[in-house]
Amino acid sequence: MSLWEYANPVRFLALSSRVLPVFWGLAALCLVSGLIWGFFFTPNADKFESTVKIIYLHVPSAMMAINVWVMMLVASLIWLVRRHHVSALAAKAAAPVGVVMTLIALFTGAIWGQPMWGTWWAWDPRLTSFLILFLFYLGYIALWEAIEDPDTAADLTSVLCLVGSVFAVLSRYAVNFWNQGLHQGASLSLDKEENVADVYYFPLLVCIAGFVFLFLALVLYRTGTEIRLRRTRALQAREVRA
């Protein structure tokens, strides 16, 4: 029994129909309980007052915005090396989720920045690199949409994803060099000293888990959709020929 068995679309669909309800349930549970915990039962912070509650949306979505791209990178590599269709379709299915996560991170950041920094937007390195990440997502999706042959599209988007990853990292360092930041340091890290206080930390962890499960559920579901669409197209093509 190996992981690669699930590269078979039929097996993948069978597995995903079994685990999907669990993931949807866990996502809903974690998101609802984490957000309610954070919104109703955590104190206001000294400096930020009630805006500290935005952290429960901002940090998880920002994490996911990056992690979704990493997942797409891994899926693209698997497609290029082992040519499992499910992998390519999973990368395709994940991209719009990444876009939404990036948008949420940007929006909540802007809404938080307005009262705290006195501006909706600043050309801070972190903000700028997220905007650039957003552009990369748009280009990736546009390339998928533009090419008709699914295998060609999968190959080209995978190459773009690899090259894009390198340039995204480069851009990150370039903007760091280019402008000094307003942005807070990491709110979560292995270094305990830097972390936010425990009152905020635990509900934040629950929210992050919620975002992760939501992402897993969405990607599995959307991959299934792509597999079905592809099979429909193949069957239709066979009908036309017959």
Partner: peptide
């Protein structure tokens, strides 16, 4: 090379290439 097979791919190519130009532009203009 990515967009050569796409008809009227000029706009798409701009969307793909411009983000890749970011580091070069930043360091060059700086």
């Amino acid at each position: 090379a990515l967009t050569v097979g796409v008809k009227r791919g000029g706009l798409l190519m701009s969307l793909l290439v411009l983000p890749l130009y970011v580091p070069t532009l930043i360091f060059g203009a700086e």
